[in-house]
């Protein structure tokens, strides 16, 4: 008599276990990610200074944000940095991948050399490049010692050029990874089509331009999305390489948010800048993730 009830209970428990297992992750996501986004969003409409306050001031912080010259510099820097970083990484990554794909001797040696910077912390990368780019001791100094007296490379000390040194260090770190993405794409292309095209007398240049590179579209898209979101989030590298300087010349939204929130005690403005960063990333990531998840398995 009791048996069916008991097994019924057991199956019902079995039905609940998966949801119970998932619950802690879902709860932490709802609190620590989405709850926190709502909280920071709310703070951006308050007059919070050193501590959070709940007095609403409307769009005041956003209005103030766009009046601040430092924020303008940070946004302009991000535009320069992100476009160069993405374009150069893709150009280098694609070229290296195509060259490595020509049945190269020692490919197994070269690939890890191109890729290892990705395993390093941006703080390590920044430490190394800060020194290499320092005109007094780094590359410039070495070339002077080697006899090239007129060589001059002082970008890191110049407020108009320093942002480009951030590009150099960031490209050094990430371009090998982009190479790996394109190489995987190249290796996935059907060789039969290429052989047929060669048979028809297509030149190497046309083969790549017309057949191979168009087939790498998914790799281009992934590389773009990953690099774009890394660019918006860039923080460590600037801190280690230039500290935002000289002056405020290499300030980025991420460093701006941190200093306004935690050292200048303008938490409302800091929160507003964080919201704008989130919106920028969402504009890139949500369509991409939507397309990725929508595709049938």
């Amino acid at each position: 008599m009791a048996r069916p009830v008991q097994s019924d209970l057991r199956t019902r428990l079995q039905e609940w276990i998966p949801k119970i297992v998932l619950a802690p992750s879902v709860a932490s996501m709802l609190i620590f990610v989405y709850g926190f986004i709502v909280f920071t969003g709310y703070l951006s409409f308050t007059n919070s200074r050193i501590l959070p306050s709940f007095d609403l001031v409307g769009w005041h912080n956003y209005w103030r944000l766009f009046q601040l010259p430092t924020w303008t510099i940070a946004v302009q820097n991000l535009a320069i940095f992100a476009s160069l970083y993405i374009a150069i990484c893709i150009a280098i990554g694609l070229t290296l991948a195509i060259f490595l794909d020509q049945k190269i001797r020692g490919e197994g040696m070269l690939r890890p050399i191109f890729l290892y910077p990705m395993a390093l912390s941006f703080i390590v990368t920044g430490t190394a490049w800060k020194w290499l780019l320092d005109p007094g001791i780094g590359i410039e100094h070495t070339l002077h010692l080697w006899g090239w007296e007129s060589f001059h490379f002082g970008w890191i000390k110049s407020s108009s050029m320093a942002i480009y040194t951030v590009v150099i260090a960031a490209v050094w770190q990430s371009s090998g990874f982009v190479m790996a993405m394109f190489l995987a794409g190249l290796r996935g292309i059907d060789n039969e089509i290429l052989k047929a095209a060669q048979m028809d007398g297509a030149s190497n240049w046309n083969l790549y331009r017309r057949i191979i590179i168009p087939q790498l579209r998914p790799a281009f898209l992934s590389a773009f999305v990953i690099l774009a979101h890394l660019a918006v989030k860039s923080y460590d590298l600037v801190i280690a390489l230039t500290g935002g300087g000289p002056g405020r010349a290499t300030e980025l939204p991420a460093t701006f948010m941190y200093s306004y929130t935690f050292t200048r005690n303008e938490m409302g403005v800091g929160a507003a800048s964080a919201v704008i960063m989130l919106m920028t990333i969402a504009a890139i990531m949500i369509p991409y993730l939507y397309a990725e998840l929508k595709e049938p398995k």
Binding site: V33, P52, A271, A274
Partner: peptide, 10 residues
């Protein structure tokens, strides 16, 4: 993919 700046304060 969120910029972690959005969660730092809370």
């Amino acid at each position: 993919f969120i910029p972690f700046q959005i969660v730092l304060i809370p």
